[in-house]
Design a protein around this nucleic acid. Structure first.
Lengths: 139, 139
DNA sequence: CATGATCATGGAAACCGTTGTCAATTTCAA
DNA sequence: TTGAAATTGACAACGGTTTCCATGATCATG
């Protein structure tokens, strides 16, 4: 059962497996797009498993902290999406918010080269592509 | 005189050369770090050339629109910095907010390759490196 | 199973960066 | 010089997010 998988993931993140957290994490599963706390709250409001707005905010933050979610900054707000646990970059559709994960050795190489050349100690980097996915570009 | 240069830059951006805009743009000149509207407002408050907070916000937004400034997103707020007019990326010190501009053909190549491979129509991309500059890393 | 120490929830209020309002002021082309 | 149009700035409003805190759920332990 999916519930057991979800609970275990929460446990591994150091979080108790509550109904609310399970609901949030399950709602994120299989979603190709990034979603904000408010959007998710609104979506869950309709179902039989509502979760308080405050709790949605807290849960998304905790899961992102734990590395289960990627935070995708959007105009004035923050969207989230389930992600793999290794480092990657994003291909983001500005129309439907679909997010594809990318790995990019050429980017990592560039980061290392530039940083060492200037005596920077790197703590992180970001490389994302924005545009329209094939489906959205067609319409 | 510097003032004439500043006024002309404003004119070219389609903005009237007011005392406030000249003050803001001059304050940005030669600054290695990115600064927020509130920070700049506070800084100017001390001088003999105060500028209203609303005006600082509007001016920074206008200058960024015009391509004179780069917007550097910071935790929950937005910082700005004078920039060159051609496309570039950033090397950002998280301690002192110093920002260096970078060009990166390897990143551009990566963007094109990935996008075409997936049928994405690219509207923009971003690649920034975060860390500690040589000076901040030392202390 | 019970049980309680600890953690989680959620409605309401507060927060904080930012934007809208609008009357007064400034700019600048003519 | 002058007047139409743009700009300013104090203030209020906004919107996403966080804090508060009393209530409720979880789960290691007995």
């Amino acid at each position: 059962m999916r519930d057991a998988v979800t609970s275990e993931a929460l446990r591994e993140a150091g979080l108790r497996a509550t109904r609310q957290r399970t609901t949030v994490l399950d709602a994120l599963r299989g979603r190709p797009d990034a979603i904000t706390a408010q959007e998710l709250h609104g979506e869950l409001r309709g179902t039989g498993e509502p979760v308080g707005l405050t709790t949605v905010y807290r849960t998304l933050a905790s899961l992102a902290d734990a590395g289960l979610l990627d935070a995708i900054p959007r105009e004035g707000e923050q969207a989230f999406r389930l992600c793999s646990d290794d480092h990657h970059h994003h291909l983001i559709c500005e129309a439907c918010n679909r997010v594809d994960e990318l790995t990019a050795e050429e980017v990592e190489r560039w980061v290392d080269a530039v940083a060492s050349r200037r005596g920077f100690r790197v703590t992180g980097h970001r490389a994302d592509i924005f545009g329209l996915c094939a489906a959205c570009a067609r319409s």
